[in-house]
Computed example of a mutant assay.
Amino acid sequence: MAYTPDAIKTITLSSIRLPLAVPISDAKVFTGRQKPMTEVAMLFAEITTTEGHSGIGFSYSKRGGGPAQYAHAKEIAEAALGEDPNDIAKLYTKLLWAGASVGRSGLATQALAAIDVALYDLKAKRAELPLAKFLGSHRDSVRTYNTSGGFLNASIDEVKERASKSLEDGIGGIKIKVGLPDSAEDLRRVSAVREHIGDAPLMVDANQQWDRATALRMGRTLDELGLVWIEEPLDAYDVEGHARLTRTLDTPIATGEMLSSVAEHRALIDARACDIVQPDAPRVGGITQFMRLLTLADEAGLDIAPHFAMEIHLHLAACYPRETWVEHFDWLDPLFNERLETKDGRMIVPDRPGLGITLSDQARAWTVDTVTIG
């Protein structure tokens, strides 16, 4: 069958405020650098074409930045109108240049990520394939671990209870937050969870709040607990410090979630500043850039564990040549009509075309602003 030309007809952008049931605190709150998180600002892009195809994608911001992402996306989206939606790489470059005065990372990439993801969703749905199959998957399920139950605002008894529930629900590993000003309390919490879950996979995340000396001292102590990884022990941009920890400690080092460009990740990878790269598709510009990162990480022999946004990252992690982890967060569940399945420690790639998600009525109710371009 001959290819039928198609063109982007409309792009609908929506700013959605997702409220959290309780204020969430990680180490950045206890060190006084941030306030507790009460909501997640979501940016959704819904694309339609002249041939009747459609796609949906999203980006997000925790704490500040949501309104700015929405505003930037509104400014650049018109550049995609009339273009062939199949030319995703071309469109990524065009959109990036449309907003180039604010750079090629950070806000600029996070705003266009929602459009980029929507284009992949559209193209995979047009092919009637799940996104993972469309991209070329290596597996139909991915190891998964839970983070949302391990924040520092929860008591250790609450963390243990939630860990048990996660494991009972078929989630394979548990991650808890550390990085408190009192390192002894960190160790008490980690030891308590390790004892509680036995030999189940356990990860810790310091959210960038240790200095180099503390990270080394804590890392050496944590080496005795058989952790899967220590996440963000240092400032996200401290490549040299992360490289030193990676060489010194037995426990693997994981980082990268805060980086918002391929160039920033390349510096991390070239320096072998981690054992596990944690890219975030909405932060680096969408799937176009994420797939570039997968190639770089694979060539360097590194593992990956994408950050947040499991609805997107499950498909992308399934495309990596070696086994990966995907982060289970139930925060976004109210936004979608569908649910991802976990079983025997793994998250199952859905058989629905594209990302396999549709916006719920609740998501529409939480929409604070929307605009259709085209």
Score class of each variant (00 low, 15 high):
residue 8 I to F: 13
residue 10 T to L: 04
residue 11 I to R: 09
residue 24 I to L: 11
residue 28 K to V: 12
residue 33 R to M: 12
residue 33 R to W: 11
residue 33 R to K: 13
residue 34 Q to P: 05
residue 40 V to W: 07
residue 55 G to I: 09
residue 58 F to L: 11
residue 60 Y to V: 03
residue 60 Y to H: 05
residue 65 G to E: 06
residue 69 Q to M: 10
residue 77 A to T: 13
residue 79 A to H: 10
residue 79 A to D: 12
residue 80 A to P: 08
residue 81 L to N: 06
residue 81 L to A: 07
residue 85 P to E: 11
residue 88 I to H: 03
residue 90 K to A: 14
residue 91 L to S: 09
residue 92 Y to L: 00
residue 107 L to A: 00
residue 107 L to S: 03
residue 108 A to L: 01
residue 109 T to H: 00
residue 112 L to N: 11
residue 114 A to S: 15
residue 122 L to A: 02
residue 122 L to W: 04
residue 123 K to Q: 10
residue 130 P to C: 13
residue 130 P to L: 14
residue 131 L to C: 13
residue 135 L to I: 15
residue 137 S to Q: 15
residue 138 H to R: 04
residue 139 R to W: 02
residue 140 D to V: 04
residue 140 D to H: 11
residue 143 R to F: 10
residue 147 T to C: 06
residue 162 R to H: 12
residue 163 A to P: 10
residue 168 E to N: 04
residue 173 G to Y: 05
residue 183 S to F: 10
residue 184 A to R: 08
residue 187 L to A: 00
residue 191 S to H: 04
residue 194 R to K: 07
residue 196 H to T: 02
residue 200 A to S: 12
residue 205 D to W: 13
residue 226 G to R: 03
residue 229 W to Q: 02
residue 237 Y to F: 13
residue 243 A to H: 08
residue 247 R to M: 07
residue 248 T to A: 09
residue 250 D to V: 06
residue 250 D to K: 12
residue 251 T to A: 04
residue 260 S to N: 06
residue 261 S to L: 14
residue 261 S to A: 12
residue 261 S to H: 14
residue 267 A to F: 01
residue 267 A to C: 00
residue 270 D to F: 03
residue 275 D to S: 15
residue 276 I to E: 11
residue 278 Q to T: 09
residue 279 P to Y: 08
residue 282 P to M: 12
residue 288 T to Q: 02
residue 290 F to Q: 03
residue 290 F to D: 00
residue 291 M to H: 00
residue 291 M to S: 03
residue 295 T to Q: 07
residue 297 A to Y: 14
residue 298 D to L: 05
residue 301 G to W: 09
residue 302 L to C: 09
residue 302 L to W: 06
residue 310 M to E: 01
residue 311 E to A: 09
residue 312 I to D: 10
residue 313 H to K: 04
residue 313 H to I: 05
residue 315 H to C: 02
residue 316 L to K: 01
residue 323 E to W: 00
residue 324 T to K: 08
residue 331 W to F: 15
residue 336 F to T: 05
residue 336 F to A: 05
residue 337 N to M: 00
residue 338 E to F: 02
residue 341 E to A: 00
residue 344 D to V: 12
residue 347 M to C: 15
residue 351 D to L: 06
residue 364 R to P: 05
residue 369 D to R: 13
residue 369 D to Y: 03
residue 371 V to R: 10
